[in-house]
């Protein structure tokens, strides 16, 4: 099988570029802890009993350290429980998100907080809010007739 010299060169260059990309995201994920969101812990939720299962029996913020919080949030048609969260600037928030009904999205535009809320599963993501602002938190997965109204805010106070 004959391969043109320049084609070989191109395949090597192109593949090398892809390897560089993979190494960059691999370092980000494995060396700097920037894994995509996800949680494979042993918390098994019955989607029908979300509000009876800890920690979602008591949704909301839990202060766990100096300006560090766990946020247990239940997505439902068409909102988030609790909504309108307020936190101080610089707060590190560990979001734990599930759904009480269908699949929802959990996205804060302008940040990398973007994950799926899936019934029966808990999704997890950590983010530090360094800028004071009123952040928009919206559902970016179609969830029904009122999907476009499913949003709330996270207010970061300076």
């Amino acid at each position: 099988m004959h391969i043109h010299r320049l084609e070989k060169l191109w395949i090597i260059i192109g593949t090398a570029m892809l390897v560089v990309f993979l190494v960059a995201i691999g370092i980000g994920a494995y060396a700097m802890g920037n894994h995509p969101p996800g949680h494979t812990s042993s918390i098994k939720l019955d989607p029908e009993k979300v509000y009876e299962t800890p920690p979602f029996d008591n949704p909301g913020l839990e202060k766990i350290g100096e300006n560090e919080y766990n946020a247990y949030i239940v997505a439902y048609i068409y909102g988030y429980n609790p909504g309108n969260i307020e936190i101080p600037v610089g707060a590190t928030v560990h979001f734990y998100v599930t759904s009480a009904d269908v699949v929802h999205g959990f996205n804060i535009p302008g940040t990398i907080v973007n994950m799926m809320a899936i019934p029966g599963e808990v999704n997890e993501m950590t983010y530090t809010f360094d800028e004071p602002a009123e952040y928009l938190l919206l559902c970016n997965e179609y969830c029904g007739i009122g999907h476009e109204y499913m949003a709330t805010t996270i207010t970061v106070k300076g």
Binding site: H4, L6, E7, W10, I13, G14, M17
Partner: peptide, 15 residues
């Protein structure tokens, strides 16, 4: 090999 310099330049720009 036939001359394919233009092709090579094109794929490099694509890359």
């Amino acid at each position: 090999d036939e001359p394919l310099k233009g092709t090579f330049a094109s794929v490099l720009m694509l890359g």
